[in-house]
């Protein structure tokens, strides 16, 4: 799997993450013994400034989306990108387990 795209969008009380519908199907085929997640919602204190810190989550979110812990198997996914909607802007990319932040996280 060359690239896994994980959408995310800000809600009033947290952030919703999830793979594209196509990538979800690809994950099920690539890792038949895993249980990929359709979506993960991370709830925060509504009054907090959680939108400034979401960039710390990506490294934990993608294994949960894939359905199993970080391992050699996960290197079958060459690139994991996090795409904010609306706008479809890629704000964070993980390449071959080398965590790389391409663009500063967009806050709010």
């Amino acid at each position: 799997m060359d690239k896994l795209t994980i959408y995310y969008s800000f809600k009033g009380n947290g952030i919703l993450f999830g793979p594209t519908s196509y990538d979800y199907e690809s994950l099920k085929k690539l890792f038949p013994n895993a249980q990929p997640a359709k979506s993960i919602f991370v709830e925060y204190d509504r009054q907090s400034d959680f939108k400034n810190y979401h960039a710390q989550l990506e490294n934990y979110i993608f294994p949960a989306i894939a359905g199993f812990p970080v391992s050699e198997d996960l290197k079958k996914i060459k690139v994991i990108e996090f795409m904010m909607t609306p706008g479809r802007t890629v704000t964070y990319t993980i390449k071959n387990n080398i965590y790389e932040q391409e663009i500063q996280p967009i806050c709010g």
Binding site: Y7, Y8, S9, L16, G18, K38, S39, T85, P86, G87
Partner: peptide, 8 residues
């Protein structure tokens, strides 16, 4: 506008 943001 209904299809601008990802929503499960």
């Amino acid at each position: 506008y209904q299809l601008e943001e990802y929503n499960t």
